[in-house]
């Protein structure tokens, strides 16, 4: 046996080299908005590494740059400083996005952004239509998703006939339709009642586990952030900086009872204090 062979064996036994690059890697990312009236440093020096299949919750006060960060990850807004790597490849080249890097992406925006000319089913199936799936296949999948988000019976409705929370659920179904490997969600459940929200939280967890999707999830609800996240990242406002990262180690799949555990309450309390202290 040659020495060379032994060496590679050794490496394999230690760290699984060559280490696969992390799903998302942000180094020194910043964003400055310049308008006629003012210059806003929305985000400053964000360093964050997110591994494949991880669920990261993002919390912070209104206006601290959560949406801005998500839009940069989605390839919709170019950072003014720093680098964003997706699986080791640079997402932004200056202010142009490398669209081949952002494939298999699902985005839920803060607003539903539905297309009023399409029915609920057609809205949900839009990403499938764009990628060229057949009609029957699309219908099937869209129906399945409509049921998943609790909109059975509204498949043929138009967005104008739905409530705000129902529209948001259509947007969630649309984002999930392609089984994305990377989900970016901006307060997706903000408009939902507590019970629906609970159910959607469980569904989201189930889907993320089943598809091994990486999720970046923005919310104002600390309990929701803790319930869903493997880590909770908190941002401070003006300029938006990461003020801390809290690890949440409850086993998955978690059920609603987790929220009654002492450990859960403790984490939520600490996070609340941390956010309060930033004032």
């Amino acid at each position: 046996m040659s020495a060379h062979h032994a060496e590679t064996l050794d490496a394999a036994a230690g760290t699984p080299a060559p280490a696969a690059p992390p799903k998302l890697e942000l180094t020194g990312v910043g964003k400055q908005f310049r308008t006629k009236r003012a210059t806003t440093q929305a985000l400053d020096d964000i360093d964050l590494t997110i591994t494949d299949g991880e669920f990261v919750s993002l919390i912070g006060r209104s206006g601290c740059g959560k949406t801005t960060l998500l839009r940069m990850l989605a390839g919709l807004l170019s950072p003014t400083e720093g680098k964003i790597l997706v699986e080791g490849r640079s997402l932004w080249d200056g202010s142009t996005v490398d669209s081949s890097v952002v494939s298999q992406l699902g985005v839920v925006f803060q607003e539903a952004n539905l297309f009023p000319w399409y029915s609920v089913l057609d809205n949900i199936a839009l990403p499938l239509q764009l990628r060229g799936d057949g009609k029957a296949e699309r219908r099937e999948r869209a129906r399945e998703l409509a049921e998943l988000v609790g909109l059975q019976g509204f498949e043929k409705s138009y967005p104008r006939e739905l409530s705000g929370g129902m529209r948001q659920r259509v947007a969630i179904a649309r984002a999930l339709s392609t089984h994305p490997k990377l989900l970016l969600m901006d307060e997706p459940f903000g408009a939902l009642d507590a019970l629906t929200r609970e159910r959607m939280n469980l569904e989201l967890q189930r889907i993320a586990l089943a598809t091994n999707a990486t999720v970046v999830f923005v919310t104002h609800d600390i309990a929701e952030a803790v319930f869903l996240g493997d880590r909770v990242v908190h941002l401070t406002p003006r300029p938006g900086r990461i003020s801390g990262i809290t690890h949440v180690d409850f086993a998955r799949p978690r059920d609603i009872d987790v929220e009654t555990e002492a450990e859960f309450g403790k984490i939520v309390r600490e996070l609340r204090h941390a956010l309060d202290g930033e004032e």
Binding site: R71, A74, G75, L76, S99, V102, S103, L105, V107, F109, E111, N113, F115, W117, L126, P127, Q129, L130, R174
Partner: peptide, 29 residues
């Protein structure tokens, strides 16, 4: 054309033709 709806098409990596057909044409009608 609403910028939020444009974002949806961009995030889906839609081609120019698709963006025209599903978004621009419809909202201009």
């Amino acid at each position: 054309v609403e910028s939020g709806q444009r974002d949806v098409m961009r995030a889906l990596n839609a081609s120019r033709w698709h963006t025209f057909r599903h978004l621009e044409l419809k909202s201009t009608m």
